[in-house]
Design a protein around this nucleic acid. Structure first.
Lengths: 128, 128
DNA sequence: CCCGGTGTTATACTATGATTATAACACCGG
DNA sequence: CCGGTGTTATAATCATAGTATAACACCGGG
């Protein structure tokens, strides 16, 4: 069990889907270096029990994370962090999402420099 | 009619909701300067007819855009671009979305400099 | 060799959101 | 008054999200 301090905080009042909250928080923890390559995640049943949601909801998050290259899932040993840098897998979608985000920022009068600063702050968080 | 070259391209195969596609494309056009403050948008019925979707779907997009400060809607004259720079309205949500986007980028090995470049390119597009 | 814990799959049910359809309403310029 | 605004109401359909229950294939360990 390399997952000691593993925590997922679910907001049941959020509009965001539960499986999306799980998925996004795992991605965030990988980016922060709090989850590293090879670390094993709790089983779908255990994590579901911990946070009080259904097994299938967690399984949906895990499956999507595997499909997008964040996890490697073995039928017996469970799920482990993989993070393979396969080019063009998510890059196009990231660019599209960034395009819309920049548009929203421009409409709200947020400068490019402000976005640069916000990004750099994120990159300095939890340097692995 | 200040809306001559107004175009909305809908992808019916996309997973993104139709009203979201309409909403996001209008935001993008405002950011690009192709829609400026005071420009009037087509009526909900006309735009719906043009792109072949229901009136209520367009109305949902317009209502959300008004609610978020992008449009000013008058019952008789229709919808006009507003873009009021009210602080903190969407800023918090933009920061949150940017946080997740940066996390995804880090996991995929995209550097902060690359994101800076992508942002600057967006800001240089359609300089109003 | 079976037990228990993996992920996986199937089915079904409920709830919510998205889309369409039809209709009616209040407002007001021409 | 007519026609064009946005707005509201109601309902029907469809897809997705979440839960519940169950069963399956796999395999390490007692």
């Amino acid at each position: 069990m390399t997952t000691e301090g593993f925590k997922i905080a679910i907001d049941f009042d959020s509009e965001e889907a539960l499986y999306m909250q799980v998925k996004n928080q795992i991605i965030t923890q990988i980016a922060m270096g709090r989850l590293k390559k090879g670390d094993s995640l709790p089983s779908v049943r255990q994590l579901a029990g911990d946070i009080g949601i259904n097994m299938h909801t967690v399984n949906k998050a895990y499956s999507l994370l595997r499909q997008e290259g964040y996890l490697k899932i073995d039928r017996r040993s469970g799920a482990r962090v993989e993070v393979e840098y396969r080019q063009g897998s998510d890059d196009k979608e990231i660019s599209e999402d960034l395009g819309l985000l920049v548009a929203r920022a421009r409409c709200k009068g947020i400068s490019a420099e402000t976005l640069h600063r916000l990004i750099d702050e994120q990159y300095n968080k939890g340097e692995a």
